[in-house]
Amino acid sequence: MALRPGFYALKEGFFRSLIYAFLIGYALVSLVPFFWALISSLKDNDSILRQPFSLPKVFLWGNYPRAWLEAHMGLYTFNTALYAIISTVTILVTSAMAAYVIARVRKGNLLYLYFTLGIMIPIHTVLLPSFILIRNFGLFNSRLSVILLYIAFNMSLSIFIMVGFLKGIPHELEEAAFMDGATRTQTFFRIIFPISQPALATTGVLTFLGVWNEFLIPLILLTNRALKVLTNGINDLREQYGQNYGLIGAGLCISFLPMILLYIAFQEQVIAGMTAGAVKG
């Protein structure tokens, strides 16, 4: 279909504007819930009920200290961060160690198969027996309980990603280290672990996000308020402050702002991690 260049350019320009209008429209609609939580958090209940969609006339910051202290969102943020950091670091070290053995030392497929089997298993299927195990170990309602399950449930995928990466590292690096008299352990911690940074970043971001956002595991294992996490807090907000919309708005913002900031800071890693995480069954 031959068109005159001028017409083609005009048609292209028209379609391009349509594409932009559509994409920007979709993007803006996507931001509405966040924006709405934000403006609600700065209003009192009266003005929310009277004019739910208007911008706040004066910024009322009072909902934030109430959500942070009275609804314990501050404590929950601390707990969530603590569990997420401990489980992510543990996952990274243990999965990299195991992946190194699988990719480099004993190149049998059996261990690999064993570890990656878990990718197929939905966590619900192992969650109830894990709850019983945790209870039998005397760990119900403890910080360790959720951390242990986060580590175990993320192991398959982390090893899958790490093995894929480690297989691509040139052998010369290790051989040079052995020549210089380094042991396997030294080689791993001084050479392999540091150069695995891209894979560690992907796995780390993926684990961290998953743990931060997890709801069902802490719902089942943590009933003590001092140990609860943000998603528990969201659940409690609804149960205890059902009509207090300003407070709920502030609680919502406290729960999503850290993740949005993290996303802005580590965008490429987040996208790479979530895409890799998508293979999880």
């Binding site: 979709y26 709801f215 709920i248």
Partner: peptide, 20 residues
């Protein structure tokens, strides 16, 4: 970035936002 953004939030938070 914006189209992907909702994926990084917890489903619990999204759920409560939509409940409102």
């Amino acid at each position: 970035s914006v189209i992907f953004l909702p994926c990084v939030i917890s489903a619990a938070t999204t759920g409560l936002m939509f409940q409102l």
